[in-house]
Amino acid sequence: MSAQPLLQIRNLSKAFGGLMAIQELDFHVNKDEIVSLIGPNGAGKTTFFNLVTGMIPPDAGQIVVDGHDIVGLRPNQILERGVARTFQNVRLFPNMTVLENVLIGQHTRTGTGPVGAILRTPAFRRQEEQAVEKAKETLAFFGSRLVGYRFDQPANVLSYANRRRLEIARAMASEPKLLLLDEPTAGMNPRETAELTELVAKLRDEQGFTICLIEHDMRVVGRVSDRVVVLDYGTKIAEGSYHEVANDERVVEAYLGTKAGKAAS
C-alpha cells in the first residue's frame, strides 16, 4: 500500500437541519483498493458520495484526494481531480445516444471550444476521432452488450441492466483515479449481479481504478471488498475485512442481523 491514501477524509460532518447525516467521519481509501460502504437505509451512504463529489458542501471536515483538499470545489472540478461516480437511481442523459453519454464522461479530458467546432480545425477533428475511439473502447469493456448498433441508440431504449452498465462506462470514460459506485447491482437479477460483481473486480485489476462502492447485496460485498466500512446514523461503527465486520456485534445489532449469517454462508 502506498504511503498516502488516495482518498483521505477527516472529521467530515454534514447536517440537514437537525438531522446529522454524517458525523465526524474519518475515512480513507488506499490506491488500488476496493472499499465497500454498507449500512442500513438512511445511514448517510449516498450523502457521503454527494459530499465527496461536491454536489453538496460539508459543514466541517477535510476531503483530500491525492494530496489536495477538494472541499469547496465545483463538482466538475472534482471530476477533473479524478473522482467519478454513478447514481443509485441511474441518471443517464436519456435522449442522448449511448456513445454521446460516454463522450460526456470525457468532457474534461478534451478541450475544444465553439470556435474549433465551427471551423472544424484539424485539432478538433483529431480530438473528436480519438474521443469516439476511446468511448467505443470503454463500451467494449462490457462485452458485446453496448457496441455496434447500440452506439447510436438513445440511452432511454436500453434495458435496466444496460443502463447501469452505461452509467459505469460514462464514469470510466472520465479517467478517474477513484470510482464511486452507488449500488451498482440494485434491481439486477442474480445472473446480472454475478456478472457485475466480476466486472467490479476487473475494473480494479485490469483497468486500474480504485473503487469505493455502496452495496446492499452482501454476497457482492463479501466477494469484491478488500475492506468494508459500516455506517450507521452518519458515524462509522465498524471497519475491517468482510468477515471481521460481519461478525462484529455492533454491526449485527445495527444492521445485518440474521441476514448476515445467511449471506456469509
Binding site: G54, R74, L79, L92, N95, M96, L103, T112, P114, A117
Partner: peptide, 19 residues
C-alpha cells in the same frame, strides 16, 4: 461537437452534467 454535447447533457440533467 464537445460544446453541443455539453449543452444537451445540461438540458437533460444539469446536476449530473456537472458531476
Amino acid at each position: 461537437s464537445r460544446v453541443g454535447r455539453a449543452w444537451m447533457a445540461m438540458r437533460e440533467d444539469e446536476t449530473v452534467a456537472e458531476v
